[in-house]
Computed example of a mutant assay.
Amino acid sequence: MPPNLALKAMNIAHRGLLRATGGKMGNSFSGMPSLELTTIGRKSGRTHTVMLTAPLVDGDTIVVVASRGGDPIHPAWYLNLRDRPEVEVSFRSGPLRPMIARTATAEERAELWPRVIAGYNGYADYQRRTTREIPLVLLAPRD
């Protein structure tokens, strides 16, 4: 797994590509749509934005995977939204939308996981690399 600095550099490069091309490049990765997820830091209270991919989109609900490449620890963005589920999402360079994030229940994960790895088998490799169960996160519009 890349160190935090490398992950941050990849996020900055991805956002830069989106902005430089007006969203014409960088809106998908490995066949999955990309999104910018903005969370509120659980410790700092500051906003943090990361680039993610969405292996599943079901109506207005977007599913993202808290894999961190199979690292043994959860990504910081997941810990942030777990504590503060009010997030903002820019899907495929679209406008920021207020959303609510929640971790899929065991039953939901059992149903969604095969669909996730069918869309991108790399997630199955990530799961094999770690003993933690990689969470699936459902992002839904705030009412």
Rank of each mutant, 00 (worst) to 15 (best):
A118L: 14
V64C: 00
L5H: 09
F91S: 01
A110Q: 06
E36M: 15
P3T: 14
R92W: 11
L139W: 00
I100L: 13
H48E: 00
L136E: 06
T131K: 12
G16K: 07
I12E: 07
T61A: 03
T47Y: 10
R115Q: 04
N11C: 02
G23H: 00
S67R: 08
V89R: 13
W77A: 01
R102E: 08
P3A: 14
M32F: 11
G41A: 09
P98V: 07
V137R: 01
M51E: 14
I12W: 04
H14S: 05
L96D: 04
W113P: 13
A13H: 14
T39R: 00
R82H: 14
S30W: 10
M51C: 12
L79H: 02
V64P: 15
L7N: 12
G119D: 07
Y123M: 10
R115L: 02
A13K: 09
E88D: 12
S67M: 15
H48Q: 10
G45D: 05
E107D: 15
M99K: 09
G122P: 11
D125A: 06
R42P: 09
H14V: 02
F29Q: 13
S67D: 07
V87H: 07
K24F: 07
W113A: 08
E107K: 13
V87D: 09
V57P: 15
S93A: 12
P95E: 12
I100Q: 07
G22S: 13
T61D: 08
P55W: 01
W113H: 01
